Computed example of a mutant assay.
Amino acid sequence: MKTIQYIKGDATVPNTEGNKIIAHICNDIGGWGKGFVTAVSKRWKHPEKEYREWFRSKENFTLGEIQMVRTEEDVWVCNMIAQHKIITHSEVPPIRYMAAEECLLKLTHEALQRNASVHMPRIGCGLAGGKWEQIEPIIERTLLNKNVEVYVYDFD
């Protein structure tokens, strides 16, 4: 089984050969404007535009769903809905691990179809309030279990 390759750098600038998918977690209320999405939007306008249209359409816009947005000939952004609302006033952070796993299973299928590597920040661990020690095994059970190359970026 492959292992996660940890890289210092910017996940919106993947430096590998071949097709690449940049994966990140979105919320289920149509909000886009804080966290990793700001880096995505600085690089490409399309992923935010598509996400907002998806939200407005209400078509399959639910936890556990993904949206693939092509940004370059060999690069896609995967908007994964795995965060319930945005701010937590309880003991429960916005991350939804079951939804993250559903998203990553769907992403695995997309990556295999496109023969693509997957690039991401430490998904679910910023504004979503998740713990990497809970996210990492989900990545192992989904993407790595099917031999998809995974790169996780820690921003310098």
Rank of each mutant, 00 (worst) to 15 (best):
R114D: 02
M80C: 09
I139D: 03
W54C: 06
V37K: 08
N27T: 12
T16P: 04
I123R: 06
E102Y: 11
I95A: 05
K20R: 11
I25L: 13
I139S: 05
C125Y: 01
P121L: 08
Y51H: 08
I7Y: 09
F61S: 12
W44R: 11
V13C: 11
Y6D: 03
V40Q: 00
D154C: 13
R43W: 11
E136R: 09
E50C: 07
G30S: 04
E73K: 15
N79H: 02
K8D: 14
C78D: 02
N147V: 05
P47S: 00
R122F: 12
W54R: 03
K49M: 14
F155D: 02
E149L: 07
T38Y: 06
S117K: 02
M68D: 10
E140K: 10
I86Q: 12
A23R: 03
A100D: 00
G124Y: 05
Q5W: 02
E110D: 06
A111F: 00
T62I: 14
Q5P: 06
D156T: 08
E133C: 08
N27S: 12
T142A: 05
M120Q: 13
G33F: 08
E133G: 04
M1C: 13
L143M: 07
H24W: 03
F36R: 01
I87R: 12
F155V: 07
K131Y: 09
Y6N: 07
N145V: 00
L107T: 01
N27E: 09
V152W: 01
E91S: 15
G18Y: 10
L143V: 03
Q67H: 03
R43V: 14
M98Q: 15
Q134V: 06
L104R: 09
A111V: 00
E136S: 10
A111R: 00
T142C: 04
P93M: 10
N19L: 06
C103H: 02
Q5T: 11
K20D: 02
L144Q: 00
G9D: 02
S57V: 12
T12W: 06
I7L: 12
S90W: 11
E133P: 02
P137H: 03
G126R: 15
W132F: 10
E73D: 14
I139K: 04
R52T: 07
V13E: 12
L63T: 04
R43F: 13
L107M: 05
E59I: 09
I123M: 14
V118L: 03
T16N: 09
E136A: 12
